[in-house]
Simulated assay, not measured.
Amino acid sequence: MQKAKLTLTSLAFAMGLAALAGCSFPGVYKIDIQQGNVVTQDMIDQLKPGMTRRQVRFIMGNPLIVDTFHANRWDYLYSLQPGGGQRSQERVSLMFNDNDQLIGLNGDFRPGVSRDEAILGKEAAPGTPQQPTQQKPEQPKEEPAKPGSVEEQLQREVDEAKPVAVPTPQPLDKNPQ
């Protein structure tokens, strides 16, 4: 009888621990998980048809996947899963001809204006499509404050304020007696 109680208690304790192992406690930090090659739009914009494998490797880094059955194709994969969040993945495949020259790319990135340049409003390199620039709306001209308003009273007080000299501290006596 005593053995049965001990066995049941230990079994219940083990099941409780197993159930708690799958729980997520609030306030517990979960790390971001990054895997693969980081590929940016600026890297893709530097690629030009006819570049050699060596030039492409200098810009992009080593490919994540070099398929033995498709020797003329390099694959770059990048995966990011923020702590406890949804995983996102980006993929780029570069194709080479028999002369080891870049002939094309396929995937989530396209040549063109980089995201940074589009945000900053800089012009794209020659030969890349331009995105239309937005014109800033004209600022309305300021009208003088209406007589008797709080705004006019504040402006009058600011205009009548007289500057006050800031006192300069006296140097300390170097030879105290």
Rank of each mutant, 00 (worst) to 15 (best):
R54W: 08
N175E: 13
L11A: 14
E138V: 07
P82T: 13
P140G: 03
M95T: 06
D32K: 12
K146A: 13
K3S: 10
T40H: 05
K5V: 08
L47N: 06
V56I: 08
M15Y: 10
A161R: 10
P147N: 07
K122P: 01
V56N: 08
Q86A: 11
E152S: 13
P167I: 00
Q46A: 11
D45A: 10
D32W: 03
A18L: 13
P126F: 09
N175P: 00
R156N: 07
Q41D: 15
M95A: 01
R54P: 00
P132K: 01
V39R: 07
A14E: 05
I59M: 09
V158E: 03
P129S: 03
K48T: 11
P169L: 06
Q35G: 09
Q34Y: 15
Q46L: 13
I65Y: 12
Q139E: 12
G121E: 05
D159I: 11
E143P: 00
M60T: 00
R54N: 15
N62W: 06
Q155H: 08
K3T: 09
P126I: 11
I33N: 15
D100L: 02
D98K: 07
S88W: 00
Q134G: 08
G83L: 11
L20R: 06
Q81S: 12
G112W: 04
I65V: 10
Q177K: 14
P140W: 01
K5D: 06
L64D: 15
I65S: 06
N72P: 02
P111F: 02
L172F: 08
D100W: 02
Q41S: 15
V166N: 05
P167H: 00
D159F: 02
D173V: 12
D67N: 08
L64N: 12
G61A: 01
W74Y: 14
Q155Y: 09
N37Q: 11
D98E: 04
F109T: 04
S93P: 04
A124F: 01
K48I: 06
V166M: 09
P144T: 03
T52R: 14
Y78I: 00
E90S: 05
I119A: 13
S79P: 06
T133N: 11
D108S: 14
M15A: 15
D67T: 13
A124E: 12
P167N: 02
M51Y: 08
A118C: 08
P132G: 02
A145H: 04
P137H: 05
